Simulated scan of single mutants.
Amino acid sequence: MARWEPNASERLAQAALDLFAERGYENTTVIDIAQRAGLGKTTFFRHFQDKREVLFGRGTMDELLAEAIVAAPATATPLEAVARALDAAGREVFTPARREFVARRQAVIAANPELQEREALKNLGLIAAMTGALKRRGVPDLTARVAAELGALASAIAYERWSETTTGDDFSALARRALSDVRASTALC
């Protein structure tokens, strides 16, 4: 591939996943990834801080969820605002075109304890972003935190179902169903 071709970020991510699957995460370097994508090391670092960030991004999910929560109608309950955030994730991130990439990404993370730790930290960041957005809406601290935690749990359940299914289920629909299931299960406690 020529260096001038568009979508360098996507090309780097795809090259990284291919190499992680072939050689393992530990045995793949930034230079390997850049070369596989037909790009230089400098281009890699324009898009990603290190090879982990190929899998985790730069907080764009945090921003997406927070913006959707803040933009929810003023009449929305905290969980309705979180549901709108999960809808935004389905429209912007968890699209049918990305399903294979997400499943491969998850396999790489599952095989590496360092990446599992990074995934857990990223999830904590998502909860913090949602909590902060709910607080900006005037939601009391404890309620904001609980709604964000429930939203994160629903998102994780939906993510698992979405990445493992071959039925073509929409992430947003799965997330709303998971949020409903989570809400119902809290009534049983």
Score class of each variant (00 low, 15 high):
Gly125Met: 06
Asp181Lys: 00
Asn112Ile: 05
Ala13Tyr: 01
Arg104His: 10
Arg183Tyr: 06
Arg176Phe: 04
Asp32Ala: 12
Lys135Gln: 11
Arg176Glu: 10
Pro96Leu: 02
Arg99Gln: 13
Lys135Tyr: 11
Glu10Cys: 09
Asp32Gly: 02
Phe94Lys: 12
Glu117Pro: 07
Ala110Thr: 07
Asp170Pro: 05
Asp18Thr: 15
Arg104Pro: 01
Cys189His: 13
Gly90Ser: 08
Leu55Trp: 05
Lys122Met: 15
Thr167Arg: 04
Gln116Ser: 12
Ala37Glu: 02
Pro78Ala: 01
Ser163Asp: 06
Lys51Glu: 07
Gln116Thr: 04
Val139Asp: 01
Asp170His: 04
Ile33Ala: 03
Leu86Lys: 01
Arg46Ala: 07
Gln106Asn: 15
Phe94Val: 05
Leu142Asn: 14
Glu117Cys: 09
Ile157Cys: 07
Thr42Val: 14
Ile69Asn: 02
Arg91Ser: 09
Glu22Gln: 11
Ala103Ser: 11
Ala71Asp: 14
Ala74Gln: 14
Glu92Phe: 01
Arg137Ile: 03
Cys189Gln: 10
Arg52Gly: 09
Ala128Ile: 01
Thr75Asp: 11
Ala128Lys: 07
Leu64Ser: 02
Glu119Gly: 10
Arg104Ile: 09
Pro96Gln: 07
Arg11Lys: 09
Glu117Met: 13
Lys135Ser: 07
Leu19Val: 02
Arg105Glu: 03
Glu149Met: 14
Arg91Cys: 03
Ala13Val: 11
Arg3Tyr: 13
Ala107Glu: 13
Thr28Arg: 03
Met1Asp: 11
Pro96Ile: 04
Arg177Val: 10
Ala16Leu: 08
Thr167Gln: 06
Phe171Gln: 04
Gln116Gly: 11
Ala154Asn: 00
Gln106Gly: 04
Met61Ala: 15
Gly132Gln: 01
Arg52Lys: 12
Asp50Asn: 09
Tyr25Phe: 15
Asp18Val: 13
Arg176Gln: 12
Trp162Tyr: 11
Asp181Leu: 05
Arg99Val: 04
Leu188Ile: 14
Asp170Ser: 09
Thr131Met: 01
Glu5Ile: 13
Leu86Pro: 00
Thr77Asp: 03
Arg99Asn: 06
Gly38Lys: 02
Glu63Asp: 14
Ala37Tyr: 03
Asp181Cys: 01
Phe94Leu: 11
Ile109His: 00
Gly132Cys: 01
Glu22Ile: 06
Ala13Arg: 15
Thr143Gly: 06
Ala88Ser: 11
Ala66Val: 06
Phe171Tyr: 05
Ile127Tyr: 00
Arg104Thr: 06
Thr43Trp: 05
Ile31Gln: 14
Glu164Gln: 15
Ala178Asn: 01
Gly168His: 05
Ala68Thr: 08
Val139Pro: 00
Gly57Ser: 09
Ser9Phe: 05
Ala133Tyr: 04
